[in-house]
Design a protein around this nucleic acid. Structure first.
Lengths: 191, 191
DNA sequence: GTTAGCATGTAAGGAGTTACATGATTTT
DNA sequence: AAAATCATGTAACTCCTTACATGCTAAC
């Protein structure tokens, strides 16, 4: 997967803004966040943390000494430079912002951005999904047609899922525009 | 992404069972199939084809001479060994069969398998999704709770999507069991 | 005639997983 | 006492993408 290193960086900075954390915990939270697909390995996370330390985006802090029993866990904190970097990354609207993984992370930390940015990211994401939809549906007219029931069913389900996500995004955009406090009051009871 | 090479192999073999094809076309079909996420590059496909040629799973065949005008495209065909390999891969039930990308490809070529295999793959996939669901929901009780509205909304949407997929799988399983010819008559008109 | 799409490849490089290595602590 | 979970890392390896290289053919 191209360019997930940036994604990890963004996610780590975002999480550390909720408070200091050590690597192990960071990993769990990360997996919970983008954990619907792949799982993040230590071989990925720790080197990324080291890199961020070198770049002075985060610092190591000793545990608060309250827990003297535990093995000294290395707890990380964001530096001012880290905060600045985070804000800059979050303000970057552009293709990278609405690619699958990146979008999820950005969305999760939307609280740290202005509504203007939020709207542009949500709309960008929606456009991208609609493009995909159009391309696939156009392609489907030419190709296979009815051969292979299972492949067709998979396509159908895929299209439906994307359409669903488009509707989700539309609801969120409407909520943002309406200045609504709730991101999605879920007026559509599923099923 | 770990182990997608096998996925490409499986997909190529499956597609070539629908008839001979050249690389460029293969790529388009493949992207249409697993194209909801990443796009397959030539740098991935052609080396894979070369490898399969060496392994004697496929052979090059000259274009049917009908199109003498075109640049000679290299058209590929499955060998008997390729067919055998494909059947073996498709019969392998196990964790790799119900991981995201792998599942999609296997599902697309379900016509080439027995119902028994199909059921085991569908059920395996469903179990895996349900485990994920349980793990996430358990985790959610401990962590964040109400902090960060956007992150919570993302989780909610994620959970809902997976629940939806579980229902889809259940319908398919029921259809398979009932000996129904249609994989999903869609008794649930969406929205 | 030039742009866009068809068509096939290779080389370099990045990104991340697997497997390995180590050790403390809590639960069974 | 053993097993599971917490906790931190590193090295090798795999895989894939990006970018490059080449040339034909159809449309504008």
């Amino acid at each position: 997967m191209a360019r997930r290193a940036d994604t990890i960086e963004l996610a780590v900075l975002g999480l550390l803004h909720e408070g200091p954390m050590h690597g192990y915990e960071l990993r769990k939270r990360l997996n919970l966040m983008l954990g619907w697909g792949r799982v993040l390995s230590y071989g990925s996370l720790y080197p990324a943390l080291k890199k961020m330390l070198r770049a002075n985006l985060i610092t190591e802090v000793a545990g608060p000494a309250t827990t003297a029993t535990r093995r000294p866990r290395i707890t990380y904190e964001v530096t001012p430079a880290g905060t600045e970097h985070f804000q800059r990354l979050m303000s970057e609207v552009g293709p990278t912002a609405w690619e699958d993984d990146n979008f999820d992370i950005r969305f999760a930390f939307f609280s740290s951005t202005d509504m203007e940015i939020r709207l542009r990211v949500l709309e960008g994401r929606r456009s991208r999904l609609q493009e995909r939809l159009a391309r696939v549906q156009g392609e489907l007219e030419r190709t296979q047609a009815e051969v292979n029931r299972y492949a067709a069913e998979l396509q159908r389900h895929g299209v439906e899922s994307v359409e669903r996500e488009v509707r989700w995004l539309s609801d969120l955009i409407k909520a943002e525009r309406g200045g609504d406090a709730h991101p999605a009051p879920a007026p559509t009871p599923h099923d």
